[in-house]
Amino acid sequence: MHEFTPLTGALGGALIGLAAALLLALNGRIAGISGIVGGLLPPRAGDALWRLLFVLGLALGALLVRLYSGAPLAVPVESSTFTLVLGGLLVGFGTRLGSGCTSGHGICGLARLSPRSLVAVLTFMASAMLTVFALRHALGGGS
């Protein structure tokens, strides 16, 4: 249903990698989204503004692509409200307990050859693939 798009994938991925590289080189910080946002809960004096601005930048970057392309990005959120709430809770809690998400462990941790990040990436990839398999194939129904 969805086509393999290696060129835009590689270009976008390279930009993400460049962003992660720059955040470390300039500010000395790891570009892990869950860590950056989690550090705001609760916010600490002198440590909150850069986190908020980074998140604002994320949305602005996507908005720029949205404006340039002139058409809505393909971001249909088709999941039910229950799925969104449960998924969001698990993503929020899980990434904090596991010290990172796709960006922090995947793009940053693996680049540092961190054994913790390798275990984390293999674990969440396997857990996500098994869950999708269970929902789409084993249980037979579409979500």
Binding site: F54, L58, G61
Partner: peptide, 17 residues
Amino acid sequence: AALAVGVLFGLGLAISG
């Protein structure tokens, strides 16, 4: 710098699909 890097990251996410 954090804002600019965030924009770059957001561009990458959007372009990558």
